[in-house]
Amino acid sequence: WKITIYDQENFQGKRMEFTSSCPNVSERSFDNVRSLKVESGAWIGYEHTSFCGQQFILERGEYPRWDAWSGSNAYHIERLMSFRPICSA
């Protein structure tokens, strides 16, 4: 599993790669995730830290803005603060 997060939209700004769970992006000096690329595996992104709040399934691909992973939710969530890989047995 591999995911790359960015602190600006369209894959700009600070970037960081992960191959395992991140319970709080702010502990990695990110205020928020504004864009991301899922390089391999599937991940679950969460609205809040500690894997809480609205969940987003993140499959392999590029997500240049928050609405790319938020989709058409009843209330739009511009925040992604934690994530972890989906492990299959």
Rank of each mutant, 00 (worst) to 15 (best):
E39Y: 10
S35R: 01
T49K: 10
W43T: 00
W69P: 06
E9T: 09
G41R: 03
G41F: 01
N32R: 10
I3L: 07
E59T: 07
I57N: 09
R65E: 06
C87H: 15
D31Q: 09
H76W: 07
L80C: 06
V25E: 06
M16P: 03
H76L: 08
S26G: 09
T49H: 10
N24C: 04
Q55M: 06
R84G: 02
S26D: 11
E62Y: 08
L80Q: 03
S82A: 04
K14Y: 06
K37V: 11
C87A: 13
R34L: 07
A68W: 06
E39M: 13
V33D: 02
S21C: 11
C52G: 14
H76E: 13
E39A: 12
T19W: 08
D7E: 11
E39N: 10
F30P: 01
H76A: 13
I5R: 00
N32Y: 13
G61T: 00
H48A: 09
C52K: 15
V33R: 00
R84M: 09
Q54C: 06
T4S: 06
F51Y: 15
Q55A: 13
V38D: 04
W69S: 06
N24E: 03
W69Y: 08
D67T: 15
G13K: 01
S26H: 12
S70R: 10
C52Y: 08
C87M: 12
R65T: 15
R60Q: 15
R28G: 10
S21Y: 06
Y6E: 01
N24T: 03
E9S: 05
V25K: 03
E78M: 10
R28I: 12
M16Q: 09
F51P: 01
W1H: 13
P64R: 09
E78C: 12
A74Y: 11
W43E: 02
A68S: 12
K2H: 05
S35N: 01
W43M: 03
Y6F: 11
N10P: 00
G61N: 00
K2R: 05
L36E: 07
L80W: 01
A68V: 08
K37C: 06
D67G: 09
R15M: 10
F83P: 00
E47Q: 07
E59H: 10
Q8L: 06
R84C: 02
W1Q: 14
F11S: 02
E9C: 04
C52A: 14
V25T: 06
S35V: 01
N24L: 01
A42H: 12
S40F: 07
S21H: 07
Q55F: 06
E27K: 09
V33K: 02
T19A: 08
W43I: 01
F30M: 09
K14N: 14
A42F: 07
G61C: 03
D67M: 10
L58P: 00
Q12R: 11
M81T: 05
R60N: 07
N73G: 11
A42C: 14
N10T: 03
F18M: 07
R60W: 05
R28P: 05
S35W: 01
C22F: 04
I44L: 13
T49C: 06
W43K: 01
Y63V: 05
